[in-house]
Nucleic acid binder design. Structure first.
Lengths: 336, 336
DNA sequence: TTTAGTTACGAAAACGTTTACGTTGCAATA
DNA sequence: TATTGCAACGTAAACGTTTTCGTAACTAAA
């Protein structure tokens, strides 16, 4: 039974229109009544009802974000940036955890659309046809984050995985390594799998390093256990490796861990470079050299793009964010 | 210009009341009209407007969560649990990032209340008087998560920090250690500081181990750098330590890292036990023994408590969740 | 055949705002 | 003095639902 604008109006002896005008600083009232109304608002502890506002304004000042997984530093940093930008623009963010499950994703999209969010950020996951059709039909603006669609014209923000992987491999080469392996993620992942593998390959071939299928190991995902398995497999099929590019930081930490178990010293015997620059990266032993994505910045950018769509109506250009080699202690110069 | 219930009604040749009844499966309509209406809904791709629903039902099916920090595994796991429980109950969650800033916190509370969220989860932060007054006046149910209030009757869910710290220290003692140090967090933190320190002290004294001020080192926070600083300080003032209780996993990982820099072997020379059981803990070298909090479960519990308040109106009892020693590789049995 | 009860609806109010439009009173101008 | 213009409001419709109440038609019982 909280107070409404009517209560304020009645007590202040004005119409609700006047109260509304004062609340929104629209002018059309005298200073005297303004103070009187403000005083009543103060006394009643009146809080305007954003639901009613949303109904009439058709803006809820809320955006929805879909993540495949919540408990991951990668997602966390993205979310951090999104939340910041949203807050700066006077909006809130609803988080959804899809578990990469198509049905759940559709349910969440439906929920968000029923709640009339102003926009949707779809992160770290492949945009299926079904999803795209659904949200375009609902005419809700959408941005892809840390993913991209080749089939549909949905603006995205991400780093160029191909280039970043190239840079990672080149860093290893520049440090004098020639026996370079890769612990990749999912072989057929169009976003995080293939481009990184191809970038890696290109860097080697550009620098005259021969490459056999034994140089690369494939995994089921991009997680810690995949990294420990990965190293074991790689060592088996490519015993001469002196440097490894892991397709994610979690996998890199996994290989660090596996190396420790196997009694292999990093970076003395094997150098490791990761991908992502998660918080973890600086906490590992040794601290992980990695190619960093500006995750928080990416999140911010995505949210801001959403807001520009809402204001201008124009779909903004996609943004390729810069990656950067973060040198720490897990890669060593190799001298022959 | 999306379709409304009116459009559906008009095309199906029924009143909006009937459409509404069908949507909510309330009965009072024939099977024939039900199918006809459903067909129209399907054709139009009609999505009910949750904003309008919220206005009249006074339930938004949305809860708000306040965190001091987003990019931390601790928070992430809590959020994971909250999101799960919320989703199971047909609700969404809005995340807010307070940065432990009083002004920002108040702004967020106001925002959440204006948005008429059904409930609020206040996590990992001290509940100030101002916050409490504000949300009680608004009559929005609130649960404290991973924190607790001594001054106000707000139900909470957390582990017993005192007991958990006691258990951690006892684990070290049981493993034969007698020169035990602690790298604690903020000395005057009522929730995560003092209870853990006191629990630690009690365990030592209960087992006849003398304790000087040199056994404990205090930090500014609970983060990685605090852990690396902590170890250095502790070694300086207490060179004989063989086992260390770090007040958080991040700090524990920090001490691992510092130990590595200093050439101290863990667990051979020094054993380390952490607190939290974050994802990090199993990824460290060596894998971290720690006292685990069931973070996701705690998040779930908090959300579920919120829902029971909404349904029953009764404030539920606070829940003390069980902690558990997770044995991994960073603590070694000591033989004399 | 009448009556009572039930089923299947429709009309309209209500939720708490914003806003288009109308109205009043007063000052300034002709 | 009559007219105009503007500031300062008030009235009421609108946003898209849910729900109460009323009613027509039909069924079953008397």
């Amino acid at each position: 039974m909280t107070n409404t604008i009517k209560d304020v109006a009645k007590i202040a002896n004005v119409s609700i229109a006047t109260v509304s005008r004062i609340l929104n600083a629209q002018g059309g009232y005298s200073e005297k009544t303004k103070f009187r109304v403000l005083k009543v608002i103060e006394e009643l502890g009146y809080q305007p009802n954003a639901v009613a506002r949303g109904l009439i304004n058709k803006r809820t000042h809320t955006i929805g974000v879909l993540f495949p997984k919540l408990s991951s530093s990668l997602v966390t940093d993205l979310l951090d940036g999104i939340e910041k930008a949203a807050n700066d623009n006077g909006s809130s963010v609803i988080v959804c955890h899809t578990e990469s499950n198509g049905e759940k994703t559709m349910k969440y999209l439906q929920l968000l659309i029923e709640k009339r969010v102003d926009g949707i950020i779809f992160a770290s996951e492949i945009l299926k046809d079904e999803y795209y059709q659904f949200v375009t039909k609902a005419k809700v603006p959408m941005i892809l984050l840390s993913t991209e669609s080749y089939a549909y014209p949905v603006p995205f923000v991400k780093v160029n995985d191909y280039h970043a992987a190239y840079a990672a491999a080149k860093h290893l080469i520049d440090k004098g390594h020639t026996n370079i392996g890769m612990i990749s993620g999912k072989k057929d992942d169009i976003i995080a799998g293939i481009p990184r593998i191809e970038g890696f390959k290109k860097a080697l071939s550009d620098h005259g390093i021969s490459l056999s299928p034994d140089n690369i190991v494939f995994s089921r995902g991009f997680n810690f256990p995949d990294g420990v398995e990965g190293l074991k497999k790689l060592i088996g099929q490519f015993p001469d490796v002196t440097a490894i590019f892991a397709a994610s930081d979690e996998m890199a930490i996994g290989t660090l861990s596996a190396a420790y178990q196997l009694g292999i010293k990093v970076p003395e015997e094997i150098s490791v470079i990761g991908y992502d620059n998660l918080n973890l990266a600086e906490m590992s032993i040794p601290p992980l050299t990695t190619v960093g994505q500006p995750l928080a910045k990416m999140g911010e950018a995505a949210a801001e793009m959403l807001f520009t769509i809402m204001e201008t109506g124009e779909t903004p250009e996609s943004r390729i964010m810069p990656h950067k080699i973060i040198e720490r202690m897990s890669v060593k110069e190799r001298k022959e």
